[in-house]
């Protein structure tokens, strides 16, 4: 194709159309996610269930972690094996705030947000020098050091973790939600996770977001260390909202399945692209991935105690056969259906 003004305009139009179609596809999936969650909440509330509420709440919280991993892996191509570190850190900070300082949801979430962002900067500063597998290993090593350190610190409850975290009430000014109420807590979590999703989706559309993608597409962007530092800070920032977990008991053991979870979730969701800047990633896949995986684990776990064999096999199959994951599989099909004609240019990416 000759590089004439006309072709340039044509390409730009096609790219813009493609991006709109992508956004539409994501929007449809995200909307469907909320709708499904609300239907579930209605059914579960009507049948007076608690367990499935707790499970679903957990799935949503994991979806938050999965989005965080996805932000790094999906957009910048950095595989963090140490994401459980931020997850556990958030849980511990919010537990400490609630227990020793103030049993306020907003205090916990605010302090956790600030502390996690700070930790993200520190971890980013340490990990910033490493690339590719070295980045994966350094994050893994960091998480191990912190895990062992917490495990050995008796002031933090050592191997028993922190117990006796107060049950709190989430104040929204006009109304409030008791965190111990399964329905209320589920809805609060849903709102927070979807806000997180919306914020990240918006962030990815800003010039900063495009820069993140550019880092992956064009490794020469590495020459801009300041930008990269900013990107890593964002890596820390996405750990906001971890305070929701206040109700649960942080135990160091959590860090281990956490590693598996963090590494596994985005995969079922979606993974890998070939580094084309126009190729958008689908954060929404992380939402579905987390829910599918949590559900699968629970269902298979009741059939057989050897559920890890099945989960592991599914995991491997999805790496081999669905490297783009669930969203990567569904979205092009959705796009073709809802916005015919717009799919083509981006497909070649």
């Amino acid at each position: 194709m000759a590089d004439t003004p006309a072709t340039r305009v044509a390409v730009r139009t096609a790219v813009a159309a493609n991006e709109r179609a992508d956004a539409l596809g994501d929007g449809v999936l995200a909307g469907a996610f909320v709708a499904l969650a609300l239907v579930f909440a209605a059914v579960a509330a009507a049948s007076g269930d608690t367990f499935f509420f707790r499970l679903a709440t957990e799935a949503l919280i994991l979806a938050g972690v999965a989005m965080a991993v996805d932000l790094l892996l999906g957009y910048t191509g950095l595989l963090s094996l140490g994401h459980a570190l931020f997850f556990g850190f958030g849980a511990y900070v919010s537990a400490l705030v609630l227990k020793h300082w103030s049993p306020s949801f907003w205090a916990a979430i605010g302090v956790t947000f600030a502390a996690a962002a700070l930790l993200g900067v520190v971890a980013g500063f340490i990990a910033i020098r490493a690339r590719g597998v070295y980045f994966a290993l350094i994050t893994f090593g960091l998480a191990q050091v912190v895990f062992k350190a917490v495990y050995n610190t008796r002031e933090l409850g050592g191997s028993d973790g922190i117990i006796g975290i107060p049950q709190i009430r989430v104040e929204f000014g006009l109304f409030s939600v008791q965190a111990s109420s399964p329905l209320g807590f589920f809805l609060v979590t849903l709102v927070f996770v979807m806000l997180l999703y919306a914020a990240l989706a918006w962030l990815m559309r800003t010039p900063f977001g495009r820069l993140l993608v550019a880092i992956r597409a064009n490794e020469s962007a590495r020459a801009l260390p300041g930008i990269l530092a900013l990107a890593r800070q964002a890596g820390g920032l996405r750990d906001r909202g971890r305070g929701r977990r206040a109700l649960r008991q942080p135990v160091p053991h959590a860090a281990r399945p956490g590693v598996a979870g963090a590494a596994g979730l985005p995969d079922i969701g979606q993974r890998r692209d070939h580094g084309h800047p126009r190729r958008r990633r689908h954060l929404v896949g992380a939402l579905y991935g987390a829910v599918i995986l949590t559900g699968l684990k629970s269902v298979i776990g009741t059939w057989t105690e050897h559920h890890l064999i099945i989960i592991g096999a599914l995991f491997m199959l999805s790496v081999i056969f669905l490297p783009k994951g669930f969203a990567g599989y569904v979205l092009p099909r959705l796009r073709r259906r809802f916005a015919p004609g717009a799919g083509k240019p981006g497909e070649g990416a």
Partner: peptide, 15 residues
């Protein structure tokens, strides 16, 4: 794992 135990206990009582 205490976290899992809590989840499973809740399931047994509730479901």
């Amino acid at each position: 794992n205490p976290n899992v135990a809590v989840q499973k206990a809740e399931k047994l009582f509730q479901v």
